[in-house]
Simulated scan of single mutants.
Amino acid sequence: MRRIHVIGIGAGDPEQLTLQAVRALRGTDVFFLLDKGAAKADLTRLRRDILDTHIPEGTYRLVSAPDPERDRAAGGAAYAPAVEDWRGARAALYERLIAEELGEDERGAFLVWGDPALYDSTLGILEEVLERGSVTFAYDVVPGISSVSALAARHRTGLSGVGRPVQITTGRRLSGGFPEGVEDVVVMLDAHQVFRRFADEDVDIYWGAYIGTPDEILVSGPIAEAAPRIERLRAEARERKGWIMDTYLLRRRPGKPSGDPR
C-alpha cells in the first residue's frame, strides 16, 4: 500500500527538524510541493533547502503542482464557504498527485510548516481524499516545532504565566476583544494588525515575522510603544518580499484582569 508522511518541518530553520523528521525525510521516495507562485517562491526554496540539508541528492523525486487559488476577499458569511471550496480543490489535487505520481509500494511526503496539528489543513484534506475512495493509502504524522514555540523561544519567554491558561486564536477572532478569563493570547493569521486596538491597555506584545529564517524580525514591548514599529517593519517587509508570515503573543500585565478597560 502507498504510504504518506505528513512531516512538520519547523518554522523555516533546517536545524529545527527533529530526528524523527529527518528519518522520515530519508525514507521518502516522492515529495509533493505546492507552488504558490512567484511572490512566495521563498517558501519553495526553503523546502528545497531543507531537503538539500538532510537528504543525499538523487535519492528522491520532487513533484510540484500549482496550489489552488483561494478567494481571500470573501468575508463574513462567505468566508467559511470560500475555505471549504479551496479545501475541496486541494483534496482533488492531492488525490490526483497520489494516484498518478506515487507507486503502490512507494512512500510520499507533504512538508508542513511548523506542526501539522496547528493551523494546517493537510490532515483534514488527506482524510477527505480517503473518504472519496478512489485512492487508498496509509499515512502518519511527524510533529514539528511550530511558529508559536519558535516565537516564545526567540523572545525567551513562556507562553503563559504560572497557573494561567494560554489561548491560540486568529486576528479575526481577536477583533471581538480579549478572550474572557485569559491573560495570554497567541494570535495567528492577523492581516489587519488587530493588536492595535489594545494600545491603551496594559498589554505587552511579543511579535515575530519569518521566524526561523534569515529574514526573521522580532519586536517586543508595551503595545503602545511597539505597535508603530511593528506596523512600519511589517509594511516594509511585505513590500520587499511580497508576502509575510507573522504571529504574536499578547500578555496582560499582572493586576489587570481580563476585561479591565484601563
Score class of each variant (00 low, 15 high):
residue 133 G to V: 07
residue 64 S to V: 15
residue 80 A to L: 14
residue 166 V to Y: 04
residue 138 A to M: 11
residue 99 A to Q: 09
residue 128 E to L: 07
residue 120 D to I: 09
residue 118 L to F: 12
residue 76 G to P: 05
residue 242 G to S: 04
residue 73 A to T: 08
residue 88 G to S: 13
residue 62 L to H: 01
residue 206 Y to M: 07
residue 221 G to N: 06
residue 111 L to F: 14
residue 126 L to S: 01
residue 54 H to T: 00
residue 62 L to S: 04
residue 192 H to F: 08
residue 177 G to Q: 15
residue 105 D to F: 02
residue 124 G to F: 06
residue 20 Q to E: 15
residue 168 I to V: 15
residue 30 V to R: 01
residue 104 E to I: 11
residue 98 I to V: 01
residue 13 D to Q: 07
residue 210 Y to H: 06
residue 191 A to C: 00
residue 165 P to N: 11
residue 56 P to K: 01
residue 98 I to L: 14
residue 100 E to G: 12
residue 25 L to H: 05
residue 220 S to W: 14
residue 188 M to V: 14
residue 178 F to K: 14
residue 13 D to L: 02
residue 97 L to Q: 06
residue 239 E to L: 12
residue 84 E to R: 02
residue 33 L to G: 00
residue 48 R to G: 13
residue 78 A to C: 06
residue 99 A to G: 09
residue 229 R to S: 13
residue 111 L to C: 03
residue 195 F to Y: 09
residue 121 S to L: 03
residue 5 H to C: 04
residue 106 E to W: 11
residue 52 D to N: 09
residue 130 L to V: 11
residue 10 G to E: 14
residue 166 V to R: 08
residue 37 G to L: 07
residue 242 G to K: 02
residue 89 A to M: 12
residue 214 P to V: 05
residue 246 D to C: 03
residue 213 T to H: 01
residue 154 R to W: 05
residue 63 V to T: 11
residue 141 V to L: 06
residue 113 W to S: 05
residue 81 P to H: 01
residue 238 R to D: 13
residue 51 L to I: 04
residue 236 E to L: 04
residue 207 W to C: 11
residue 153 A to Y: 10
residue 92 A to Y: 12
residue 156 R to F: 11
residue 182 V to M: 05
residue 185 V to Y: 01
residue 114 G to K: 01
residue 88 G to M: 05
residue 262 R to A: 06
residue 145 I to G: 00
residue 184 D to N: 10
residue 64 S to N: 00
residue 202 D to I: 01
residue 45 R to N: 02
residue 52 D to G: 09
residue 33 L to Q: 00
residue 7 I to W: 00
residue 67 D to E: 05
residue 243 W to N: 00
residue 130 L to Q: 11
residue 1 M to H: 14
residue 151 L to H: 13
residue 186 V to Y: 14
residue 235 A to D: 10
residue 243 W to Y: 15
residue 178 F to C: 04
residue 92 A to R: 14
residue 213 T to M: 04
residue 127 E to R: 15
residue 30 V to Q: 03
residue 44 T to I: 14
residue 224 A to G: 12
residue 68 P to E: 13
residue 58 G to C: 12
residue 12 G to F: 04
residue 109 A to C: 05
residue 175 S to D: 00
residue 93 L to K: 13
residue 20 Q to T: 08
residue 234 R to V: 00
residue 234 R to S: 10
residue 28 T to G: 02
residue 229 R to W: 04
residue 239 E to D: 09
residue 72 R to Y: 12
residue 154 R to F: 13
residue 115 D to G: 06
residue 99 A to H: 14
residue 125 I to Y: 13
residue 187 V to D: 11
residue 138 A to N: 02
residue 187 V to K: 06
residue 47 R to L: 09
residue 258 S to G: 10
residue 252 R to Q: 03
residue 199 A to C: 09
residue 169 T to R: 02
residue 32 F to I: 03
residue 167 Q to M: 09
residue 36 K to F: 06
residue 84 E to H: 01
residue 229 R to H: 08
residue 19 L to M: 15
residue 102 L to Q: 05
residue 153 A to R: 07
residue 128 E to T: 12
residue 120 D to H: 07
residue 182 V to H: 10
residue 119 Y to A: 10
residue 78 A to F: 08
residue 204 D to W: 02
residue 217 I to K: 08
residue 251 R to K: 06
residue 159 L to F: 10
residue 110 F to P: 08
residue 15 E to T: 13
residue 141 V to E: 11
residue 80 A to Y: 04
residue 231 E to K: 07
residue 67 D to Y: 08
residue 262 R to I: 03
residue 108 G to T: 01
residue 141 V to T: 10
residue 257 P to M: 07
residue 92 A to H: 15
residue 53 T to V: 02
